Computed example of a mutant assay.
Amino acid sequence: MINETALLESRTLRSNILERTDALDRVKALSLLPDGMHVTTAMVAKYFSVTVEAVRALVHDHRAEMEASGYRVLTGQELSDFKQLSGIRSHTRSLALFPRRSVLNIAMLLRDSEVARQVRVYLLDMEYLARTQPVENPAPTDPAALDTRIDQRITHILGRTVVPMFNVLIATSGEHRRELIELRADIENVERKLCWHHKRLATLEGDAPADDVRAKLNAMTWRAFEHHVAGLLRRDGCVDVVVRQARTDRGIDITGRTADGRTVAVQCKNRSGRWTVPSADMQKFAGAARAIDQADVALFVATSNFSHESEAVAKLSGVITVNREELEAWSAGVLLKALR
């Protein structure tokens, strides 16, 4: 798995994932100029919670790379035309513009920003999933294969573009927030149905999607499993998702927020065989999530089942359990109800 240091230091790695600009909105809403395509230096600084001088210094040190990703400075007639088309009122003689690709480029270079670090974590999670998922190339002459490819393409667009767009609108809207949440739920229902449709077609063609998901989970290390769960949270609309680097006694492996602002704390247990989650582990996590972090949504995700005692503790403390069967369905594309 590519680490964060390699991403910070390798221009080649950065250029290979510049198209994944949805990572920006997954972490934080990015406000755009009236043209809907660009942001200014001040807007970039505000997004990453750094100074304008820090952004300018970064552009100065990586000018060629930034220009390759779309950064440019408007002057003269070009600036006048842009102001007129976009409705900007400014008396400046030059204007630096960043398209979304350039903002993502900044995120992959900016070291002293928590927002930039969260964007990098999301990118690395998605890169890991892309590398570990098998690539299928169905024959274009097969009608069933064509239907499957269309379903997968639509699902990809819904999950990577439409749902993040609704997350941004929900986060920034006040008057129509409830209607937007309902519309997002409808979109997610379509996405979920397409996922099940793809699984049904694969089953009819002799594949075993459930076995494939199960095999991937079995092959994961504890750290890969945590990043896998973090990716599922982001897929379901969560933002500010952070996989904690240090192993602590508090039992919280992942934190984040749902699209409607609720805080999330997650404990991940990657165990195999007939092992079940004991009540002691549940009590420990419940205390950390509820009493210390005071999380709105506490999730205990395990690759096994839970003991009767741990289920009872979870119910009393309000912890939501995700057992092996529910985890496989979640990994296959089913939306986790607790995050809605």
Rank of each mutant, 00 (worst) to 15 (best):
E67G: 10
M43R: 01
T51M: 11
V50Q: 09
R111A: 08
H38P: 00
A45I: 10
V59M: 13
S113H: 04
A42R: 03
I88F: 05
S94W: 13
H62T: 11
I88P: 02
L85N: 06
L74W: 09
P34Y: 00
V59S: 09
Q77R: 06
S94C: 12
A54C: 13
R63V: 03
V119A: 04
I88C: 05
L123Q: 05
D61R: 15
L95C: 11
M43D: 00
I106N: 03
V73A: 03
V73M: 03
R93M: 08
R72M: 11
L104Q: 05
T92C: 09
D81C: 11
D125I: 08
F48P: 04
S69Y: 05
K46R: 14
H91W: 10
S86V: 01
V50T: 11
L110Y: 00
A57S: 12
L124M: 03
R111L: 07
L85Q: 09
D125K: 06
V52F: 12
L79A: 02
T40F: 03
A68V: 10
L85S: 06
L109I: 09
D81G: 12
T75Y: 05
L97P: 13
A116M: 09
E114D: 14
A54R: 14
R63D: 04
L95M: 15
V39Y: 00
T75H: 07
V103W: 10
A116Q: 07
D35V: 13
